[in-house]
């Protein structure tokens, strides 16, 4: 039975590809429906092909404003979390100090906590302090939950770094500052970049914690959430599709460039 044998041998591949399909199906739907011209307020059923939404992506009141707020928060949260997280990661890998265990738990806990718990407790704090909810409270919250992920990403990279490289730099007349700038930082850069990208993605896409601590400020995910109750404009799909395409293109270009560079040098 050649067919049965073939199936048996490729069972894993078939199952894996089916899962991949499951993962990508919603993106396909989002893309297709960005060309829809819905009848009612909701964009859930296919009506007819149209490029209206692509021609006027900001044609919905408030959407592009929310997008800009989300981008600003994501950028600042990335900078803040990357800076603080990188410092912690270096301290954890490079130094011995007391209370190491407690520090590790304090970093691990935010990742092991359901978002809704963090969101609710942070809101309790802000309410108790009488803080004005808005841009700043969102930013504070985002830096908080991105921090741990940056620490993990940077820590992995710094751990795999040979400490002799820094010693070699010192041996070759580089003082502590020079050693850090010329050797440590460039070598840790991929880890820091990975942490920063993760922080950006987490912050940009966060809904639950933002929803609790935003006050009347509307980020892009909150706009989408609101429109799910009021009516979903096609422009949402346009933004979703554009972000997906930009991400894939960016990654693929960097991969192609990386490959070519490796091939040239080898």
């Amino acid at each position: 039975m050649p067919v049965v044998n073939w199936l048996k041998r490729h069972l894993v591949v078939i199952a894996g590809l089916l899962t991949l399909g499951y993962l990508l199906l919603p993106n396909v739907v989002v893309t297709v429906f960005s060309f829809n011209k819905p009848k009612g307020r909701f964009n859930y059923e296919w009506q007819q092909f149209s490029t209206d939404a692509w021609k006027d992506p900001c044609g919905v009141a408030g959407m592009c404003d929310s997008l800009s707020i989300s981008l600003q928060i994501a950028i600042w949260a990335t900078i803040g979390a990357t800076l603080l997280g990188t410092m912690i990661a270096f301290a954890l890998v490079r130094y011995r100090f007391r209370a190491r265990g407690s520090v590790n738990s304090l970093i691990f806990l935010p990742m092991a906590m359901p978002e809704v718990v963090m969101a609710a407790s942070l809101l309790t704090l802000f309410l108790n302090l009488g803080a004005q909810l808005g841009f700043w409270t969102i930013l504070i919250a985002h830096i908080m939950f991105c921090l741990s992920f940056v620490v993990v990403a940077v820590k992995a990279r710094v751990l795999s770094m040979d400490p002799r490289l820094e010693q070699a730099a010192q041996d070759l007349y580089a003082g502590p500052a020079q050693t850090f700038l010329r050797v440590t930082l460039p070598i840790a850069a991929p880890g820091i970049a990975a942490g920063a990208m993760l922080a950006f993605a987490l912050s940009f896409d966060d809904f639950i914690i933002t929803n609790f601590n935003a006050g009347s400020t509307v980020t892009f995910p909150m706009f989408v959430w609101g429109s799910a109750q009021r009516g979903t404009p096609v422009q949402i799909n346009v933004i979703g599709t554009a972000m997906f395409l930009i991400a894939v293109l960016l990654v693929l270009t960097s991969m192609v460039i990386g490959n070519r560079r490796n091939r040239q040098k080898a």
């Binding site: 896409d205 979703g240 990654v251």
Partner: peptide
């Protein structure tokens, strides 16, 4: 394949979840 697994992250998860409303309509 790795890129395809990670890339959906860049579309807001709310938008992707709403897409299931269409798929399961």
């Amino acid at each position: 394949i790795m890129v395809l697994v990670i890339a959906p992250f860049f579309t807001s998860f709310l938008i992707r979840t709403l897409a299931w409303k269409t798929i399961l309509a």
